[in-house]
Amino acid sequence: MSTEKHAATFAPPAVNADGKRDLIGLDRGELEALMAEVGEPKFRARQLWHWLYHRGERDFAQMHNLSKEFRQRLGEKFYVGRPGIAVDLASKDGTHKWLLELRDGQKVEAVHIPEEDRGTLCVSSQVGCTLTCKFCHTGTQRLVRNLAADEIVGQVMMARDHLGEWPSPKDGRMLSNIVMMGMGEPLYNFENVAKALKIVMDGEGIAISKRRITLSTAGVVPLIERCGAELGVNLAVSLHAVNDELRDQIVPINKKYPIRELMAALRNYPGLNNARRITFEYVMLKGVNDSKADAHALVKLIKGIPAKVNLIPFNPWPGAPFERSTPGAIRDFSDIVFDAGYSSPVRTPRGEDIMAACGQLKSDSVKQRRSARDREAAA
């Protein structure tokens, strides 16, 4: 499937039921153009940027350095949006998961994972996913559409609302890191993801550094270089197998972009060095990819690439065809990779009790649509 076909899966216009346009998701240039359309000087865009993205303000009436007349006109034509929260779940380990409702009724999930020294928000880029990775619950939900930039930025702003982190704090943030590891393949929605992340990284707004943003891909080779050149964020690669035969089965995108092509693209990732390593994600599947031989093959495969390997114990979901590797197998695998000179931490599963762990995200949009059809049929 080409990137062009994925790009054709559009989000609906950012207009509410009253015909007002959402200001969230507009970049600086678009905000300036919009101010010109309504007869306002260019500096108004910078003032609005501050209120929208630095202070997180949603009420035009509270934007005190704007004239009362201008605030009134803003309220007549525009609004400041957020995704709706359909379900709000808190795990016993502090992880928080939101099922978010978008303007067309579709749903995606976002997860906040608090730690002692940071707080990471896992952000979705698509409703559903096209990749059908066999170990991933999201992959069992067909791709519905790409998220627009406002829907991606909106996940970050919604989490900031929940955490009470407005204005944007400089230090001690509970939301300090972003990982594009939620629902969907970010590189199959590159234009919207890139626009959203540039807004998030802007130093006068949400101001999360590119050093604290990681984009995860299953290996959309043609867009890897562009990601590094235009965004400069950290790159994580969902590898999960060390040969094409197995990866074709469990990560089907490998049939289009096999391991050899993927590794060549990664070796040329812009800005790659020992201080900015590629993270290889490797889910540990019992009896499938977790042998000592697999570990040695992995070390050989990534040789020469500044990298670390995140070992992810498989997180089960209803109907999953795999089991988690044993603690002993995971430990032996990690030791082999570590002894070869690569950091190989084992990711601690978080939020399993609310299906918020890696590979468990799946919105209930499909189930709800099916239930609605069943009700209509019964009627």
Rank of each mutant, 00 (worst) to 15 (best):
P313E: 06
S176T: 04
A229C: 06
R324Q: 12
R375I: 14
A241R: 08
L102E: 09
A207C: 01
D104V: 04
A11M: 10
G29I: 02
L246C: 04
F280L: 05
V87N: 10
W51V: 12
M263R: 02
I113Q: 09
L99R: 11
A17W: 06
K362Y: 05
L239H: 13
V366M: 08
L89N: 05
G119A: 05
Y342K: 01
K5N: 08
A357L: 06
Q141H: 15
S176H: 02
A293V: 11
H54M: 07
G232F: 13
H54G: 05
S343Q: 13
E204P: 00
L163H: 10
D88K: 09
T95L: 03
H296M: 06
A14V: 05
I213R: 06
L131G: 04
S209T: 08
W51Q: 05
D202W: 01
R212S: 08
L231P: 06
F280S: 05
I253H: 03
V220D: 01
N189I: 09
R375C: 08
E245N: 10
A218T: 14
N65W: 06
T326K: 04
Y188D: 13
I253V: 15
K303W: 02
C129V: 13
L48S: 07
V179E: 02
E281P: 13
G203R: 15
